[in-house]
Amino acid sequence: DIIVVALYDYEAIHHEDLSFQKGDQMVVLEESGEWWKARSLATRKEGYIPSNYVARVD
């Protein structure tokens, strides 16, 4: 699995987006352009995240 960590807070604009806080970790389900589908490890919610707001966890 690809795990990413949020570098900034993000508040969902569209209903299919996933809100998150800086430091939250998410599993990337699908990488497509600038918006990736991800699942929050904390809340288990799924949605689209801006890929430039996150960094991969090695």
Rank of each mutant, 00 (worst) to 15 (best):
23 G>W: 04
19 S>R: 07
1 D>A: 03
38 A>T: 07
28 V>M: 08
49 I>G: 01
33 G>F: 05
40 S>G: 08
53 Y>M: 07
12 A>Q: 04
9 D>T: 03
52 N>S: 12
3 I>L: 08
2 I>K: 10
44 R>C: 06
45 K>D: 10
56 R>A: 09
42 A>Y: 09
42 A>T: 12
3 I>K: 10
24 D>S: 06
5 V>Y: 09
10 Y>T: 02
9 D>Q: 11
23 G>N: 14
8 Y>K: 08
25 Q>P: 09
49 I>A: 01
22 K>E: 11
11 E>K: 13
50 P>L: 09
21 Q>P: 01
10 Y>K: 02
31 E>H: 02
29 L>A: 06
19 S>M: 03
42 A>F: 15
28 V>T: 02
35 W>C: 10
58 D>C: 12
15 H>S: 14
14 H>W: 04
21 Q>F: 15
42 A>C: 02
47 G>P: 03
20 F>A: 02
17 D>R: 13
37 K>L: 13
3 I>W: 03
3 I>E: 11
4 V>R: 02
20 F>L: 04
35 W>E: 09
29 L>R: 07
54 V>R: 01
19 S>V: 06
27 V>M: 14
29 L>T: 14
17 D>N: 15
15 H>I: 09
31 E>D: 07
15 H>R: 14
48 Y>I: 15
33 G>V: 05
27 V>K: 15
32 S>Y: 08
32 S>W: 06
29 L>P: 02
43 T>I: 05
8 Y>N: 15
35 W>M: 14
51 S>E: 09
8 Y>W: 13
25 Q>R: 12
9 D>H: 01
56 R>G: 07
31 E>L: 07
45 K>C: 13
2 I>D: 08
24 D>M: 03
51 S>F: 10
15 H>N: 15
3 I>T: 10
17 D>Y: 07
39 R>C: 05
26 M>Y: 03
57 V>D: 04
24 D>K: 04
43 T>N: 10
58 D>N: 11
38 A>L: 03
51 S>C: 11
56 R>K: 09
37 K>F: 14
25 Q>N: 11
24 D>Q: 09
14 H>L: 09
35 W>T: 15
16 E>C: 06
5 V>F: 15
45 K>H: 15
16 E>S: 13
37 K>S: 07
32 S>L: 06
12 A>P: 15
46 E>T: 09
28 V>P: 01
58 D>P: 08
5 V>T: 11
15 H>T: 15
16 E>W: 10
4 V>A: 09
43 T>D: 12
57 V>A: 06
20 F>C: 12
16 E>I: 13
9 D>L: 02
20 F>G: 00
55 A>N: 09
50 P>H: 15
57 V>T: 13
21 Q>I: 13
29 L>E: 04
50 P>V: 00
20 F>Y: 02
6 A>N: 01
46 E>Q: 12
10 Y>F: 13
2 I>Y: 13
27 V>C: 15
3 I>S: 05
31 E>K: 15
21 Q>C: 04
22 K>L: 05
56 R>S: 10
46 E>D: 05
27 V>W: 06
41 L>P: 14
4 V>I: 07
2 I>Q: 07
22 K>C: 03
25 Q>I: 04
15 H>Y: 11
25 Q>H: 03
8 Y>E: 07
42 A>W: 03
12 A>C: 07
57 V>L: 13
5 V>R: 11
12 A>T: 05
3 I>Y: 10
46 E>V: 11
14 H>F: 05
7 L>F: 02
52 N>R: 13
4 V>W: 06
11 E>W: 06
38 A>I: 02
5 V>N: 04
11 E>A: 08
43 T>H: 07
12 A>R: 08
19 S>H: 10
31 E>C: 05
42 A>M: 10
51 S>H: 11
24 D>V: 04
15 H>C: 15
4 V>E: 00
48 Y>W: 13
24 D>G: 02
51 S>Y: 05
25 Q>F: 04
7 L>A: 03
1 D>Q: 15
9 D>P: 12
27 V>P: 03
22 K>V: 12
7 L>K: 11
26 M>W: 01
3 I>Q: 06
14 H>V: 08
24 D>A: 12
28 V>L: 13
33 G>S: 09
21 Q>E: 07
17 D>A: 11
1 D>V: 10
52 N>D: 12
17 D>H: 14
28 V>S: 01
37 K>T: 11
56 R>Q: 12
20 F>W: 00
